[in-house]
Structures are given as C-alpha cells and as structure tokens.
Amino acid sequence: MQQVISRPWIWSWLAAAATFAMTTALTEGSGAGALAYAALSFGAFAAIVGLGQMLVITLGPGNVDLSIPAVMTLSGTLALKAMGSEPDTAMLGLGVAILVGLGTGAANFALIYALRLPPIVATLAASLVYQSIAIWSNRGLRIKPPAGLADFATGRIFGVPNVALVGLVLAIVVWVALERSVWGRWLLASGQNMRAARLAGVPVEMVRASAYVTVTAFAAVAGYLLASFSGGAALNMGQDYLLMSIAVVVIGGTSIAGGFSNVPGVWGAALFMFLVVSMLNSYGAGAGVRMILTGLIIIGIVIAASTRRASK
C-alpha cells in the first residue's frame, strides 16, 4: 500500500476517479459511459501535448515550450491544406504535420542554442512567427478533413475513441523511452544537473535538442488530430493548450525542478482536467466558478506535492 501511495501518478488518477464519481452520482449513473468516452476523447489532446511538454519540463528550471498552441494551429492548417479534402491523403497530411513539428522544434532549439535565449522567450517569439504563417495560409479557407480521416478521428475501436488510442500508444512510447532507454536516462540526468550530466559523458545538447523537437512534433500531431476531429482547423484551436499542457504535467506529478517525469500521471491529469469541468458544469457552475476552482485545484495539488516532498 505504502508503495502505491508513494507513486506520484496515483494522485491524478484518484482525483480523476473522484470527479468522475461525483459527476455520475448527480445523474445516478446514467450517462457514465458517455462521460468516460468524452473524457477519453478530449483528454487525449491534452495528454499528447502534455507528454511533449513533460519531456521539456524534465530538462529543469526555465525549460518550457510556449509555442505549443501556434504549432498546433500551424500543423492543423498546413495538413488540411495539403490534403485538400481529397480522399486517401491522411498519410500525406500526417507527414506534413510531422514535418511542421520537426521544423518548428528545430527552429525553437536553434534560437535557444545559437542565440542563447531563455527557452521561455525563444519559444514565445518563435510562436508569434508560426502563428503568422498559420494566419497567412489559413486565410479565408475552410477546408474539411478528408472523410476517412474525419471518421477515424471521431471513431472508436472496441468502444475506445481512436484519438485516445493514439494518445495511449504515444504514452507507451514515451514511457519506454524514459524508463528503459539510454536516451531517457540521459534526459533525466540532464534535468537533475546539466553540468554533472555533461561531465558524466551525457551528450546534453543532443538530449535538449531532441526534447525540444519532440514536444513540437507531439503538438503537431495533436493539432492534426484536433483539426480532423473538429472538422477543420481554426486559428484559435490551440489557445487552450498552452496552460493546459503545463497544468497536466504538474498535476501529473512531474517535478517542475526537473529530472523526474511521470507518464501515467499526465494521462490521469488530462482526464481530470476534463472531468473537473464537466463535473462543475453538471452541478450548474458558471464559467467563472469553473475557472476559479480549476486554478485553486492546481495550486492545491502543487502545495500537497511540496508538503509531501518536505515530510519525506
């Protein structure tokens, strides 16, 4: 039991389960399936961008990617444009999205490395440029995703939303990379002490670069799926995901001080963030109350995590 309690990811899952129970209690159980389905669908996008953000935050204080919303918008826009609603172009669209992700990640890290800008400022400044490219290419266009892709993005297998399956596969890939691969060890070592890691033979710049490219690649995939899911790309489609991506990482139990990541926690937190909103909705809370409570919950979780750390 002690073992289970001490795992930081358990908390976000418990919180998600509690909110789920409280929501369904109101309706006496009816609609539980639909609620779970919606949570998995919408949580998947937060989880995917959260996984990427987690890798960057693991690099240590000051490392965070603020370009996620712009990259999502850009990738959704360019991918839909490339596909042009033609059938059988889903793979082309995915390819475009991934290229956008790799390109923006490389650009972000180039600013961070070559110009030695703090990552917060570098990704912020770059995201303005990405946003502009998206606006320019999206101008007056309203392109629908190809029918097959739209069906996939909104469809399900064995009752589980496809987007959640994609999120799950990506989570497993990230988990293996972090927990089992040499690269993961290098990333965690760099996040604890960059200088010590370098002196222990870790190629720290390669590790940092790969983390910054991965986060935008994940954001690009999330943007591609979200655009297909919601029937087209919109210029503001990414805006909720900036704070969301950081929130799910922190609630999920990843250390903001770096060097410690938590993959299952990100998924739990993503579900929780959606369920909290639907719980408050079903209890009739207005938008203002929803936001206030969300904020207080985030702060409460950070305080709980820090006192747990202190008592250890």
Binding site: P61, V64, L243, I246, A247, V250, I256, A257, G286, A287, G288, V289, R290, M291, I292, L293, T294, G295, L296, I297, I298, I299, V302, I303, S306, T307, A310
Partner: peptide, 26 residues
C-alpha cells in the same frame, strides 16, 4: 514559505483571476 515553483502557482492563479473577471463582468 512552502518553496513552491512560482511558474505553477501563478499559472493556477491565472485561472482564478480569469474566473473572477468573468464573475465581475460576464
């Protein structure tokens, strides 16, 4: 006092301020 990461606390507070603002002026 609690040695919290400011970036996360202020992130949480941004939701609180935003919610209060909606409250004051829907």
């Amino acid at each position: 006092a609690l040695d919290l990461p400011a970036i996360v606390v202020t992130l949480g507070m941004s939701f609180v301020w935003g919610g209060l603002a909606l409250f004051v002026l829907p």
